[in-house]
Design a protein around this nucleic acid. Structure first.
Length: 473
DNA sequence: CTATGGCACGGATT
DNA sequence: AATCCGTGCCATAG
């Protein structure tokens, strides 16, 4: 049962192993930098742009068939289909691929800035000569994801008609944190509402109220609103509630988590997922699809041309070029290896945690990395590296750290939260422990206290006041 | 006296 | 070898 290491090949093997391990522990973004550096410095490495499948708009590797369309009926519903693909939408880079594109570094370089995040999504949809306009706007985003300058000013500065900038702003607004790049919270809300209305029903009058009754709404003047728009107070409250739950006037804030305020621990920096899990055809009962994102648009390989050239070269040149080729092919292999490992791992994890992925934290099964290491017959540290610093996007668009799949008590905490939310009167820690024990979870009273504080839930006596507050309102 | 949070210890996980 | 986690003990606040 001990790993059969890679069947003996070449003296390269040690370098190969070393590099695979390093690559495995890299974040997607770091990997992208690595690849770009190599592309720039090593003439033997080339990148082949991928085409798109005409029917499903997915990326097709090389000239092969589309992985989804040509894919026969997916297997049994309990087994996820797994394939690897790149995701051009996310990783189309402004910079190095086409020379005249945006220099990429007017943006702050810590992690991925909001601006860069948006730019990557939209650069495809823009005419190349319009990209600098978008970049100009994006540079003027504040932390909330709103524009700090009025469009007219931008138009004057750039010597472009306002209408032009407006259309660009329109594209920006539909990018990932929906509503980003709006001039006001109100506008952001309207854009979000529009997008949302395609997915689920939106209460009547919501649009009107946001566009015309915004100030009243923010002051909580429900009766005035109801009078002006000739509807019931109840309905106004319903709308208010809807807005609160589904929209975010500051699109730049709280990208992590689902417009919920429950987890303060999550950071607000933008972060691309390394892996995306989605439901086939967005059908929640369907098959889970796991995509390992590779951070460049296209497939990497050793340039055939360069190989030829190397054969014909001689002397020092030949030796140097050989080295280049070797480096390039090593990198390509290692990246494949990395993706393969991550994809296999994610597949197993997805099967095991399907409930969690679809239904939420309560259903997370406590598992350890070791189990998967045995299952996949790799060393534990391999799993650790594959999991570390990676993030996963779930079908509901939440992005969570990969390590959350191995949280040993998240499910208990979720249940605890549930109990407390449903409690009629504040329960003490020992009572909570008691209830959990009845549900088959035996934890010490002290532990309950820890979970509570992890969840940011106040102690018993303080919760009392909270309840009263709700009553007073 | 009860409920909680701090500290620290041992076992499991990485 | 280093870190995380559950838990027991004890001081303190209510």
């Amino acid at each position: 049962m001990y790993q059969v290491h890679y069947p003996t090949i070449r003296p390269q093997i040690t370098a190969h192993l070393a590099q695979t391990m390093t690559l495995l522990s890299l974040t997607n973004d770091e990997l992208r930098q690595r690849i770009e550096a190599e592309l720039a410095s090593n003439p033997a490495l080339e990148i082949i742009k991928d085409g798109r499948c005409p029917s499903c708009r997915r990326i097709i590797k090389g000239s092969g068939p589309c992985p989804i369309c040509s894919c026969p009926k997916p297997g049994s519903p309990t087994e996820p289909v797994v394939f690897i693909s790149s995701r051009e939408d996310f990783y189309r880079k402004g910079g190095s691929m086409a020379g005249e594109d945006i220099a990429e570094d007017p943006f702050p370089s810590k992690g991925i800035s909001l601006s860069a995040h948006v730019m990557r999504q939209i650069s495809l949809d823009l005419d190349p000569q319009d990209r600098y306009l978008a970049a100009y706007l994006l540079v003027h985003l504040d932390d909330d994801g709103l524009l700090t300058i009025p469009l007219i000013e931008a138009a004057r500065y750039l010597h472009k008609p306002v209408s032009k900038l407006k259309s660009i702003q329109g594209i920006i607004q539909y990018a990932d944190p929906i509503g980003v790049g709006s001039t006001s919270p109100k506008q952001a809300l309207l854009v979000q509402l529009e997008v949302l209305s395609e997915m689920k029903p939106v209460p009547n009058l919501a649009t009107t109220i946001i566009s015309e009754g915004m100030s009243l709404l923010s002051q909580g003047q429900y009766n005035e609103l109801a009078r002006q728009f000739q509807t019931s107070i109840r309905h106004i409250q319903h709308i208010e509630n809807f807005i609160h739950k589904n929209l975010n006037p500051y699109p730049g804030r709280s990208y992590w988590g689902d417009s919920r305020s429950h987890n303060l621990a999550h950071i607000s920096t933008y972060h691309q997922p390394d892996i995306i899990i989605s439901c086939l055809n967005d059908d929640p009962d369907g098959v889970l699809v796991v995509e390992v994102i590779i951070p460049v648009a296209g497939s990497l390989r050793v340039s055939q041309l360069f190989r030829e050239a190397c054969k014909q070269a001689d002397g020092d040149k030949k030796i140097m070029w050989r080295k280049d080729i070797e480096r390039a092919s090593l990198l390509v292999k290692c990246i494949q290896q990395r993706n393969n490992t991550m994809s296999r791992l994610m597949q197993r994890v997805a099967v095991c945690q399907k409930e969690f992925i679809l239904k939420g934290e309560k259903f997370l099964k406590p598992v350890t990395r070791v189990q998967f290491a045995r299952e996949l017959e790799v060393h534990e540290s391999t799993i650790s590296r594959a999991v570390a610093n990676k993030s996963v996007q779930l079908p509901n668009r939440r992005i969570i750290p990969f390590s959350m799949f191995f949280d040993r008590n998240l499910n208990v905490r979720a249940i605890l939260r549930e109990i407390i939310e449903a409690e009629t009167q504040p329960l003490s820690d020992s009572e909570l422990a008691e209830i959990l024990a009845q549900k088959g979870i035996k934890v010490a009273r002290r532990t309950v206290a820890k979970y509570r504080s992890m969840e940011g839930i106040l102690p018993t006596h303080l919760r009392r006041r909270e309840k009263q507050k709700i009553w007073n309102d």
